[in-house]
Design a protein around this nucleic acid. Structure first.
Lengths: 169, 169
DNA sequence: TGGCAATTGTTGAAGTTTCAATATTTTCGC
DNA sequence: GCGAAAATATTGAAACTTCAACAATTGCCA
């Protein structure tokens, strides 16, 4: 292995056939789309998100709103900026979603007394009750994934995703 | 291990405490948002997609267009349906992106002679040349990920994602 | 202190995606 | 072979997201 690397590094004309089947291929020009990490993530995300979406549709609530309710559930207010970060939305999008949720009386705005530029968001009682129903639906979805995919794989995948996210920052 | 499984399978009243520190918590009502698989996937996807996007921006091309070019690069035509499936877009969205790409002379439409309902998409020479430059950018992004995140983790993550996608269908 | 730069959130316009309806062609049962 | 149903792609309207500009407030430093 040492030797193989040395040979390959010296650009030998002799082709050394590598043995390992799971040897790390560096991504090359003709790597199929389906082997790119970015693509696999997009595909997995799309699939899982669809499943969740269709569960939450029972309550007529989009995934983003569930995330917002879940973050606010603890009763501590969050500024729009914190919230946007937490739920993976950019500011203007969040503002408009929050507008709808305020209309539905799920959340409400309070001006931050410490810093009057900020708006603190809170979850209403109605929002909390809905949130709990949504949590059940989300839980059952995740249970369903674990059933098909296995407990070990699920946990391992979560761990790897967390590391990836960390390493990307 | 055999025995443990047997006990657990027989629903014994005796609790067998599993040793593993990474024991599977079943998702519960108050599982934080950030521990849900759907959330981790969304976050990782967002992050990696942003990185890729900013690389491809050097050529002024959105990620979706790179995917399309890459799929068509082999010169075999694809129907809109096949293409939509391959690049994770729904039909109307694809139609409109293709309209733009046709304007830019990156791809072209040909009516399928075997089945005149279908339109076969092909990549132009110009599209192929651009695709190769984009492939380089995408490769360098993936190399960058591997650098920070590690080769082993990257491959393992890809494997797990593939399995997840399979198990979800 | 006064004023300039930075932070925070919202708004309106522009761009994009999605939904439902449509047009065209093929398939299949009878 | 005919007609109804299915498959394929596109279109226009509606919904949504994003971008750039704006308004309000705070922090800073000279």
């Amino acid at each position: 292995m040492h030797i193989e690397r040395a040979i390959s590094a010296s650009h030998s004309l002799i082709r050394v056939k590598t043995k390992s089947p799971t040897v790390a291929k560096p991504p090359s020009q003709d790597t199929p789309l389906t082997e790119h990490l970015a693509y696999l993530l997009a595909q997995a995300n799309r699939e899982i998100n669809r499943q969740l979406e269709s569960r939450l549709a029972k309550e007529g609530v989009p995934v983003e709103q569930w995330r917002i309710l879940k973050v606010l559930f603890d009763g501590n207010g969050r500024s729009m900026g914190e919230l946007a970060e937490a739920v993976l939305l950019n500011h203007p999008t969040l503002t408009k979603i929050i507008d709808r949720m305020v209309s539905d009386a799920l959340v409400y705005r309070v001006q931050d007394p410490k810093d009057r530029r900020k708006v603190l968001m809170f979850c209403s009682d109605r929002g909390k009750i809905l949130c709990q129903r949504l949590n059940s639906l989300a839980m059952s979805q995740e249970a369903h994934i674990v059933e098909n995919y296995g407990n070990k794989s699920t946990n391992e995948l979560k761990r790897l995703l967390e590391n990836l996210i960390d390493s990307a920052n």
